[in-house]
């Protein structure tokens, strides 16, 4: 089974070379992508492929539920390298509908270490419990939070010191929030692009939703399943 992957690799490299004899030489000489992709680890969301980019054109960071927490050393290392060395011009946070990480938060069961990783999404669900209460279909609840999660990550990135420093230096940098549907292969722009510190400040203090009443934190029954506090 695993040997098949090595055979596939031989086939891929040979085909590439046959089609373009200079391909690997060019690729090895330089990495200069314009884009940093922060996406989900889900195997059905192949970053390069869905946006039609070749190796070398997209710097990729993936984790469960496409989170960008300011305390994650992995993310911070990627972000600093992308901004200060590669000087990417766009950061794309791309979530996807039907995310298993988000579903794990909403199902109310325990999932071990994943629960620690997903604590921010758990809080996001609690912030949106009035919205979630209006949605009866479990899958639609997941998808709703998938979108809100992308927006939250864009907001978090826009306040990240590496990003703020890049804007201070006058570096051209936009942060985009997208969502992908595995069901049709299409990306949707969630219209949350942030291009500078002023836009980031506006995004950091979102207006209360005009569509809904007061927070249902005051409501009598909890709507988002709560797990025992992770230790």
């Amino acid at each position: 089974m695993i040997e098949a992957l090595l055979r596939n690799n031989l086939d891929w490299a040979a085909t590439r070379t046959r089609l373009d004899p200079e391909y690997f030489r060019r690729l090895s000489e330089q990495q200069a992508p314009d884009y940093l992709w922060i996406g989900c680890s889900d195997s059905r969301v192949p970053a390069n492929e869905i946006v039609g980019l070749q190796p070398g054109e997209l710097f990729v960071h993936r984790n469960v539920a496409n989170l960008a927490p300011a305390q994650d050393m992995n993310l911070l290392a990627v972000l600093q390298f992308a901004l200060e060395t590669l000087k990417v011009r766009h950061i794309i946070v791309c979530g996807h509908y039907g995310c298993g990480g988000v579903r794990a938060v909403l199902d109310g069961r325990r999932h071990g270490i994943l629960d620690h990783w997903m604590q921010r999404v758990q809080r996001l669900c609690e912030d949106h419990d009035a919205d979630l209460d209006a949605i009866r279909d479990p899958e639609t609840r997941v998808n709703f939070i998938c979108e809100k999660n992308v927006l939250a990550q864009v907001r978090s990135l826009s306040r990240n010191p590496f990003v703020v420093d890049a804007w201070r230096r006058g570096q051209s940098l936009s942060i985009h929030g997208w969502i992908y549907s595995i069901r049709d292969g299409l990306v949707r722009d969630l219209e949350t692009t942030v291009c500078d510190a002023d836009a980031a400040a506006r995004l950091a203090t979102p207006l209360p939703s005009p569509r809904r009443g007061s927070s249902s934190r005051t409501a009598s029954r909890p709507r988002v399943p709560r797990r025992p506090e992770a230790r």
Partner: peptide
């Protein structure tokens, strides 16, 4: 589900009272 409804959730206003309808 993946296009019209999410877009409407972003665009609709309080008076539309669409959330529960879309949810149902």
């Amino acid at each position: 589900e993946d296009d019209l409804f999410p877009l409407l959730r972003r665009r609709c206003q309080a008076a539309d009272e669409l959330d529960s309808v879309l949810g149902a």
